[in-house]
Design a protein around this nucleic acid. Structure first.
Lengths: 246, 246
DNA sequence: GCAACGATTATGTATATACATATTGAAATA
DNA sequence: TATTTCAATATGTATATACATAATCGTTGC
């Protein structure tokens, strides 16, 4: 799946693809258990009647994906699944709402430009007290509030944000279209709604909420920190697996 | 990072690695913005004084990773980051607890073997009413309950589980060591603790909790469904980024 | 018996080459 | 002018080859 890419049954697979899917299928089905030595390159060369380079490319890819481990002079071995790594797709909120079949609506609640406070610097992992833009927004699914957004943008990294009101466009898509980001860190946790959040999401204070925080860097520079808060009933994150690697 | 692998500065990079890191660095830094046409293979061949095959392998890898898009006769182009995909590592609870520097302790609360009920079949996505093993466990960090586990195991897929009491070993590691799994789906959400969970985790009823549910398949067969519940203060999931793909 | 050494072997990396394939752009034709 | 055709071009895939590198095995020498 993830490693192999989509397998169109119709078209003729390339040799590379065929070797890849054959082997990973045998591993994932359990036919070749963890620790099993898979055939040597020269054996696969014979089996598939192709050059060693072709086999090598496929096995190297499986090794990079973490499904097998290769050791010189000894052979290639099926690795046991180690960590339960999953790919979590965190989409734009508009897309999530529209996937529910509900009309999406966005509201900018507040916008402040200021010198970064100590708290701002902690959230952004910023050294200097340069200017930041603080935003508060709400995202609606139909009439109901779907998510609350509290965001800081480092104006040293994204100067043009200072001229944007964010009345019509949400800061998330605005930033994605503009800033190539190179790293991000997400933190996901459950919290009880404080009064402010409860009012914004139209729920009871103390009700459980899902909080997704994201910090984004672009080439070493902190770009933005955002905290999304969802009412418990409104939202579930779904992560699809990947089987491999340690 | 994810695509490039760890970059040891000390050792001499292979040409392949050098091309890969050079190009992705230029993309991630923003020097080559989304839509930008990166040099043709024959130009890179000249720049790095290597064969086209070497360049091709590197570019193919970047394309597979979703950083660039390649179109014949036209060139290769930097893709814009589309979805905020993040890799969420869901480790074994013992490892998480020990990472906190606390002693880990496991308790099996209950164990029932039964024909699958309608609810069981819904959770496992099972068709037939074959036998299942229902387990309830608690995981401790020091003296405090850290997580509550409620698990169903499909005995049709893992018959040997019927003979295991799970007194000494937690079902998670036991299964991982035995069953090669090929797919998993995670659902993450916030809930209020009901009375049962509240008692198990030693928190107030109604307190916010983080719930991680996982369904696992092995070669088309449902293997297990597990629901972990964490008290809000005790746990934060951390997901690291990946920049690319659509 | 044990350490040192070299031969063997499987993988790692790179090259030159060949031909297939998709797309563009210009020339030829209707 | 509109359409078809064809050559040029960049990528896609595969081959044969070469040499490097790491680990193992068997032999030799102490």
């Amino acid at each position: 799946m993830s490693i192999i890419g989509t397998m169109d049954v119709g078209e003729p697979l390339s040799l590379h693809q065929r070797i890849l899917s054959d082997i990973s299928e045998r591993i994932l089905s359990g036919a070749w258990a963890p620790g099993h030595r898979i055939p040597f390159e020269h054996e696969l060369t014979a089996e598939y009647k192709c050059s060693r380079m072709t086999v090598n490319k496929a096995l190297s890819q499986l090794a990079k994906a973490g499904m097998i481990e290769r050791v010189r002079r000894t052979g290639s071995f099926v690795r046991r699944p180690q960590s339960q790594a999953a790919v979590l797709e965190i989409h734009d909120i508009r897309i999530e709402v529209e996937a529910l079949g509900l009309p999406y609506c966005y509201e900018r609640v507040a916008r402040h430009k200021r010198r970064s406070s100590a708290e701002d610097r902690a959230l952004l992992e910023l050294d200097s007290n340069g200017p930041v833009l603080a935003l508060e927004c709400r995202h609606f699914a139909g009439k109901r509030p779907f998510a609350h957004e509290r965001r800081l943008i480092n104006l040293a990294a994204v100067a043009e944000a200072a001229n944007e009101e964010f009345h019509a466009v949400a800061p998330g898509p605005w930033l994605i279209a503009r800033v190539p980001w190179s790293a991000a860190e997400h933190r996901i946790r459950a919290v009880a709604a404080d009064r402010h959040i409860a009012a914004a999401l139209d729920i009871e204070a103390g009700a459980p909420c899902l909080v997704v925080e994201r910090r984004t860097w672009s080439a070493e520079h902190p770009v933005t920190h955002v905290r999304f808060t969802y009412a418990a009933e409104s939202h579930t994150l779904v992560a699809r697996f990947t089987p491999s690697q340690g």
